[in-house]
């Protein structure tokens, strides 16, 4: 149902600047993997290499391998568009399409992949909104603009939009950083529910959040400003937060830097 991601020897560049270096890891299906680390350590950059959103930025490129159940996402015959179709993404700030209604926002991705009947679309929209724990709040105003919802609701709308196209993997780039604590809690509950069906990767600045929601955690760090970021340590979240093997990880988790 959901797929495994294997990364090996991955470097990512912005122009001539190397943002991350030699990242290798395995991300297990039907689990939540969290990336933590100080600002600028490349964890968001790395996340964006997993669905080829990194190369959207002019001059950005990637070297190395990312395998989705054994298939190389960066193989020459693979189009970024199809990769993104399979690996959905939720962004830091909720970004529903401002000119579209709630319904149209959820259906936006569906429309790309061929015609569906009205009733099929209705069904998927309802399922996706239910899947994003938003259905009860919006079912009476599906034709109202998505931008009229609260920040937390908008973010769940974006999650509904992402799962409506049935991706294999869901990438979340600090999805709660613009939200209040109650909305954050709602998203965290949602993530726990979604992990039954999806491979979930989340970047977060919030260590408690990583400890609460994730099964495995990767700690990113960089030697100094201007140097590329690297994975320092990756492990079961419970072990990482109680008994990290690296000094830097411990320092970061206990709040000594970052």
């Amino acid at each position: 149902m959901s797929k495994q991601i294997q990364v090996s020897g991955l470097d990512a560049y912005y122009g001539s600047h190397k943002a991350i270096e030699d990242v290798s890891m395995t991300i297990e299906p039907r689990s939540i993997t969290a990336f933590i680390g100080p600002s600028g350590c490349g964890k968001s950059t790395f996340l964006r290499t997993l669905n080829r959103m990194h190369e959207v930025i002019p001059g950005a490129r990637v070297e190395g391998k990312v395998l989705l159940d054994g298939e190389d996402l960066y193989a020459p015959t693979v189009e970024p568009v199809s990769v993104r179709r399979m690996i959905g993404m939720v962004f830091q700030r909720p970004n529903p399409f401002p000119t579209m209604s709630i319904y149209e926002n959820v259906a936006a991705g569906l429309k790309l992949n061929g015609r569906l009947s009205k009733s099929e679309t209705d069904g998927i929209v309802e399922d996706s909104l239910k899947g994003a724990n938003l259905w009860n709040e919006v079912k009476d105003r599906l034709n109202k603009p998505g931008a009229g919802l609260s920040g937390g609701q908008q973010q769940r709308l974006c999650i509904a939009r992402a799962i409506a196209v049935r991706p294999e993997v869901l990438l979340m780039d600090e999805p709660c950083s613009a939200l209040d604590p109650i909305s954050t809690l709602a998203i965290e509950d949602l993530m726990a529910k979604l992990k039954d069906q999806y491979t979930i990767v989340i970047v977060t600045h919030n260590m408690q959040q990583a400890a609460r929601v994730s099964d495995r955690t990767a700690f990113f760090n960089l030697a100094e400003q201007g140097k590329p970021g690297k994975v320092i340590e990756m492990d079961e979240t419970s072990r990482m937060f109680t008994n990290p093997s690296q000094k830097a990880t411990e320092d970061y988790i206990t709040g000594r830097f970052g």
């Binding site: 669905n51 959103m53 959207v56 568009v81 199809s82 990769v83 993104r84 179709r85 399979m86 959905g88 993404m89 962004f91 700030r93 970004n95 529903p96 399409f97 401002p98 000119t99 579209m100 936006a108 991705g109 790309l112 992949n113 974006c158 939009r161 992402a162 196209v165």
Partner: peptide
């Protein structure tokens, strides 16, 4: 046109033209 909407469209698997139709032209 908001960059974040353009990225949202691309992340849904839109081609460049589909992204423009979703996030740029309506705006």
């Amino acid at each position: 046109a908001p960059k974040m909407n353009e990225e949202a469209a691309l992340a849904l698997g839109a081609t460049r033209w589909e992204m423009i139709r979703m996030a740029v032209l309506p705006f």
